[in-house]
């Protein structure tokens, strides 16, 4: 009994924190979706008493939801966010896997230093790092010159790297890379070298050993890293705003605009809900597929 109260009293603070700052705002957001937008932001009062007639009207409507679900523009942004996030996640996975493997297999003496190098970017502000990319990709940058030189030598027209979907994805990958490396490393580091030796011994080449043993066993790390990259990417609005153009706006930008510029809170809320629900649905789907294929089966043991 004592243990039970101790368990709950310890987690009381985070529970209260999450209720106040996460659950409650989410519920409010759901309600706002059914309200009528105010003229200067916010929403119209829920109950209005007619000045002359004294007639009471309740200001609720499904208009925002109907609009959001039928708007081609919103679905386009939504789809684009999905595609960008999927590309980002795959790029992060492709870049992180060999790196995490290298760190996991390196001498124990150097592992901490290598991991430190991975998280060093966190020491400077996220915005500053994106600004740095604006300089790296900018029209006067060596990178842009070099790429244009290459492109022109094949007879194509020069391009601007900055303010393009490519720049958005480059930055998204850069920002999210450590979130893929760390869970992958944590997983790969635990792998038993004897399993690889056993698979080689039983007739698998290096490559087959990787596909049949290392990769399936690292599935929990891939899924954890994938979730940590995919979920923040889909709601990202700073990166497309700073390094993207009109054709690379994401759903996060729309939500921000609805709340801060267009002052249509209900539409912003609907969009946010659509995003949250789809992220949850994708997470659940991946979880089900993973447990069906056995990737996670052993992980809890």
């Amino acid at each position: 009994m004592f243990k039970l109260t101790e368990k709950y009293s310890l987690s009381l603070a985070p529970i209260v924190y999450l209720i106040l700052l996460f659950l409650l705002p989410t519920i409010i957001m759901v309600f706002v979706a059914f309200r009528i937008p105010g003229s200067y932001g916010g929403v119209e009062p829920l109950i209005v008493k007619g000045a002359s007639s004294g007639h009471i009207t309740i200001n609720m409507s499904l208009d925002s939801i109907k609009f959001a679900l039928s708007s081609k523009f919103i679905w386009q942004l939504f789809l684009r966010s999905m595609v960008y996030s999927i590309i980002t996640t795959l790029c992060c996975l492709g870049l992180s896997y060999p790196l995490a493997m290298m760190v996991a297999k390196s001498n124990k003496k150097y592992r901490d230093i290598l991991l430190l190098l991975v998280i060093i970017p966190f020491w400077s502000c996220f915005l500053i790092r994106v600004y740095a990319w604006m300089i790296i990709l900018g029209p006067q940058s060596a990178v842009n010159h070099a790429i244009n030189y290459l492109i022109e030598s094949f007879g194509f027209a020069a391009v601007n790297l900055l303010y393009s979907p490519v720049a958005v994805i480059i930055c998204l990958v850069y920002i999210n890379l450590p979130f893929m490396i760390l869970p992958l490393y944590a997983n790969l580091e635990k792998h038993d070298e004897a399993l690889i030796e056993a698979s080689r011994d039983l007739g698998a080449s290096r490559w087959q050993s990787f596909w049949k043993i290392t990769l399936p066993l690292s599935m929990p790390g891939i899924l954890a890293g994938g979730a940590l990259v995919f979920i923040p990417s889909i709601g990202m609005f700073v990166v497309p705003e700073l390094v993207g153009n009109n054709c690379s706006l994401m759903i996060g930008n729309l939500i921000k605009q609805q709340f801060l510029q267009t002052m249509n809170w209900p539409l912003g809320s609907v969009t946010a809900i659509v995003m949250t629900v789809s992220v949850l649905a994708i997470s659940a789907l991946v979880g089900v597929i993973a447990s069906r294929t056995g990737g996670l089966r052993y992980a809890n043991k």
């Binding site: 038993d192 004897a194 399993l195 030796e197 056993a198 698979s199 049949k212 043993i213 399936p216 066993l217 056995g294 990737g295 089966r297 052993y298 043991k301």
Partner: peptide, 10 residues
């Protein structure tokens, strides 16, 4: 045959 058996857990 390895000391730790080295069975594939998955």
């Amino acid at each position: 045959i390895f000391q730790s058996y080295a069975l594939f857990p998955h």
